[in-house]
């Protein structure tokens, strides 16, 4: 029996990475849920929007690095973030202007928007691959760890180490800050309330004199900001590869639907639930159980519920379970 080591092991391989991942998913799901709440369609291009934003940040980071600018222990990418956000906002507004607005004026079926968003997704995917290429790009610099596994072991005298990376802490801090600002905006400001009103009851919002174009514009701006930050944090924490942003779409959708689509709080909850499920279900508990069992004993096999290959199957299973059991999501979402 060695509970302390077991807990540290669990924290190191499950809790810390899953929390960072959850924050990234939550930011992504917030964007999806916002677009859904305001424009009422599932935006398949959201993954590529994240990718696009991250790409802009990476390019700016490289430029800054070339100029010799750095933030010391913090990644330079944080400094490049505003630039990436600006570019992505402009891009999102342009797609709205030249693609989605047409269908809005025509009052098209939501599914038409969704198909158009798939078209946008492909144009963006192509652009991104032409501009930055399909390969891995690493752009994290600065200090790697806040505490390394070895330091932790020396500090505590435990067998297991707990490594905390700078990027993980940054992810969580930035995500919390962004969420706080977003909720302040939605709950306290006039524009934020107008967005909520529009999402709640479009006709009445129009009657109240809320300008739909303004609300839609605002939704895209916020979504682009969230997408760029989410993508950059993901890229810093793991790696930037255009293809990943196609795969991450599924967990993000799962998080948004699980939370109750159109519900910002739900999107955050959903992001963390999906992330924790993904990591806990695909983690091999062998060593963890060995610490908890009697001295010298270890369970046979890896003690894994699902092999890591099926990471995103977890989000799909969650998605299906939600659709079967409670299609409105944890916090009753808009429409089913």
């Amino acid at each position: 029996m060695d509970i302390l080591n077991a807990l540290v092991l669990f924290a190191n391989y499950v809790f810390v990475p899953a929390t960072a991942y959850g924050a990234q998913l939550a930011l992504g799901a917030l964007g999806v849920t916002l677009i859904f709440g305001i424009l009422r369609f599932a935006n398949f291009a959201h993954g590529e929007l994240m990718s696009f934003g991250t790409m802009a940040v990476i390019l700016a980071t490289w430029a800054l690095q070339d100029m010799g600018v750095s933030l010391g222990p913090l990644p330079t990418a944080l400094l490049a973030l505003p630039f990436g956000i600006a570019v992505t906002v402009v891009f999102a507004l342009l797609t709205d202007r030249y693609v989605f607005r047409f269908y809005r004026v025509k009052k098209s079926d939501p599914i038409i928007y969704a198909i158009a968003s798939v078209g946008v997704m492909f144009v963006m995917a192509g652009l991104i691959r032409v501009i930055i290429g399909p390969d891995d790009q690493s752009f994290a610099d600065g200090a790697r760890f806040i505490i390394t596994a070895r330091d932790f072991k020396e500090l505590t005298g435990l067998e297991e180490g707990l490594a905390i990376r700078v990027t993980q802490v940054i992810t969580i801090i930035v995500a919390l800050a962004v969420m706080a600002v977003l909720f302040w905006f939605l709950q306290r400001t006039r524009s934020g309330k107008a967005m909520r009103a529009y999402s709640d009851n479009e006709d009445l919002a129009l009657l109240s004199g809320i300008d739909p174009d303004k609300v839609v514009r605002m939704a895209w701006i916020i979504t682009a900001i969230l997408a760029t930050i989410a993508g950059t944090l993901y890229g810093l924490d793991k790696t930037y590869k255009p293809f990943i942003f196609q795969q991450i779409l599924l967990p993000i959708f799962a998080a948004a639907i699980l939370g109750g689509i159109g519900q910002p709080v739900g999107a955050i909850l959903g992001g963390f639930v999906v992330a924790y499920s993904e990591v806990t279900i695909t983690y091999a508990y062998k060593k963890f159980l060995a610490y908890l069992g009697p001295e010298g004993w270890a369970p046979e096999g890896l003690m894994q519920f699902l092999s890591t290959d099926y990471k995103f199957a977890v989000s799909f299973i969650i998605l299906v379970a939600v659709l079967l059991v409670r299609p409105t999501g944890i916090i009753r979402g808009k429409v089913i």
């Binding site: 909520r196 009103a197 009851n201 006709d203 009445l204 919002a205 009657l207």
Partner: peptide
């Protein structure tokens, strides 16, 4: 309006 005349979530 007769129906849907309030913002239910606000």
């Amino acid at each position: 309006p007769q129906v849907r005349n309030i913002f239910v979530s606000m």
